[in-house]
Design a protein around this nucleic acid. Structure first.
Lengths: 133, 133
DNA sequence: CGATGATATATGTCTTTGACATATACATTA
DNA sequence: TAATGTATATGTCAAAGACATATATCATCG
């Protein structure tokens, strides 16, 4: 997305992430953006993330639990989060996740991608209003 | 599918169209909104719609041709568009589509759903900015 | 004439995403 | 002991859509 009309240029490595996300979208349930957002506030385990998914102001219902656990493992494989088992405390073991620096950059990419997608959506709304739909 | 090309509109319980679309989203490629938007400007056949998909200011690449033809038939089944064969003129036969009144209402529902989704996305962006992401 | 290419519609098949259901396990409480 | 809440994980299925292919008409080129 050209859009380079503003002063602050972004590194190429970053902007290619943004382009990909603008193109492909965040997925039906915004699973990755939701996870990165919640983890940017502090470490948490999966069940905890799932129970707080609804706090993230993004459209649609919260994702399925299975989808969240699977996405977390996949994101760990991509280096966006790390995990370790937390033994202390009663109850079943918890896998505690932390966001990495790469994960924070990824969240920033999502924010920028969402911003760019919103610009296009606004153009669509304007055009529809203009044509009296 | 002979498509009961109806003269009459299909009655919708349109009360919850918007809610459904806000919840489920427009699909990865915005196929239905793109089609309804283009047809709101006038009748067109599938190939024509496909070649003009890129004119619609919505995020992401234009959808696959197969997906468009299948979606058109499905939308005809739901009474959002009607079609008839256009024989005149050289070249292969064209199935010309027209938007129905129900289709126009559906486009209006999409516009409202997109507006509501954008409001939520804006809240997300605001929250991210506020927390210094 | 036959080959090629643009126009036009349609179907076949595969991958990805995520929903729904189930499995496993620990700890507390009834 | 059984049930309940917490916690992680997998099995299976359906839907959406990508990619490839099939079919047909007509114009143009050699």
């Amino acid at each position: 997305m050209g859009a380079g009309t503003n002063g602050d240029e972004v590194e190429d490595t970053l902007s290619s992430d943004v382009e990909t996300y603008v193109r492909e979208g965040p997925g039906k349930r915004f699973i990755e953006p939701r996870i990165l957002f919640l983890l940017s506030r502090g470490p948490a385990h999966g069940y905890d993330l799932i129970s707080r998914m609804g706090e993230v102001p993004l459209p649609g219902p919260v994702p399925d639990t299975g989808a969240v656990y699977r996405k977390l493992r996949e994101m760990e494989g991509r280096g966006l989060v790390t995990s370790r088992w937390d033994e202390k405390g009663g109850g079943p073991r918890r896998r505690v996740y932390r966001i990495t620096a790469a994960g924070r950059r990824r969240l920033a990419s999502w924010v920028e991608a969402i911003r760019q997608r919103m610009e296009m959506l606004q153009r669509f709304l304007d055009l529809c209003a203009e044509e009296g739909k």
